[in-house]
């Protein structure tokens, strides 16, 4: 059987919020390592990849590798039934037709049990090549969310330009142009609130704000976000989640015609 108990159940709620608008259905792959998911949005422009390591659960039991084919909207609805301080357990058989979510209140006076039907999903797994990125930008996750929100008022796309002076986000629309420049803070240690840039080569790329805005739904999961950019390549947007794993998004660039 498969059983994974997450004491900080609110994390599962947050992971769900971070993927449900991007992906309609996906397989949650459960192995001894943990729970992972890789899925593209329906237009094949972006991809989400997440890992919840087994050591983040207590206990974690996976007798046999299984894939749980899940409709995200249905799972998101069920996750909304869990309170923020509930302990969440995910459970299924070795050849499952259903998955069970159990929500226990901290004092264990209330236990909710939701059983959900699984789907057969033909997932195409993509190989993500190891890339030497031109620039790796770390910044407060809330700052990145703010930038995406603000520039969405100006245009559909954001141009990310990174050079020795820092990083600039700019958008252009019918009403005009918006530019947000961030300088690199002195990096002594990577505390929250700092912008740090690891620059190998100056780089400039354009991305659809609609998708970046979907990615920022992961903001409650992490204090810092990392953008890895390389000329003419997809951007990787990563949120590392303390003690359990990560959620990573990839977005194909817009290319000049």
């Amino acid at each position: 059987m498969f059983e994974a108990r997450l004491v900080q159940g609110s994390l599962m709620k947050k992971f769900m919020e971070a993927i449900k608008d991007l992906v309609k259905e996906a397989n949650w792959d459960c192995t001894g390592t943990g729970i992972s998911l890789q899925a593209m949005d329906t237009s094949h422009v972006s991809l989400v990849s997440l890992l919840l390591r087994s050591d983040g659960f207590d206990p974690y039991r996976c007798d046999r590798n299984i894939s749980l084919g899940i409709n995200m909207e249905s799972m998101a609805k069920i996750m909304k039934c869990a309170s923020n301080d509930d302990v969440i357990t995910i459970r299924s058989e070795d050849h499952p037709d259903n998955v069970t979510f159990v929500f226990e209140s901290p004092n264990q006076e209330k236990v909710c049990d939701y059983e959900m039907k699984l789907m057969d999903i033909d997932s195409e797994h993509l190989g993500i090549p190891d890339t030497e990125y031109d620039a790796i930008i770390s910044m407060p996750a809330s700052e990145f969310q703010r930038i995406c929100r603000d520039l969405s008022n100006i245009g559909d796309s954001v141009k990310i330009t990174c050079n020795k002076d820092g990083v600039q986000f700019s958008a252009q629309g019918d009403t005009g142009i918006g530019k947000i420049a961030l300088k690199q803070n002195a990096v002594i240690d990577k505390e929250d609130g700092q912008v740090s840039i690891e620059l190998n080569d100056p780089v400039s790329l354009t991305f659809a704000l609609r998708y970046l805005t979907f990615f920022t739904k992961a903001t409650p999961l992490a204090s810092t976000v990392t953008l890895s950019v390389s000329a003419k390549n997809p951007v990787a947007v990563e949120y590392r989640v303390d003690d359990i794993g990560y959620i990573r998004y990839y977005l194909a660039p817009k290319i000049e015609e």
Binding site: M40, H44, V45, L126, P129, P234, Y250, A252, I255, E257
Partner: peptide
């Protein structure tokens, strides 16, 4: 103008 590229042109099916 710029055109949205597809992710599958960068990442190949496994």
């Amino acid at each position: 103008s710029s055109k949205q590229s597809s992710l599958t042109s960068f990442f190949k099916k496994m």
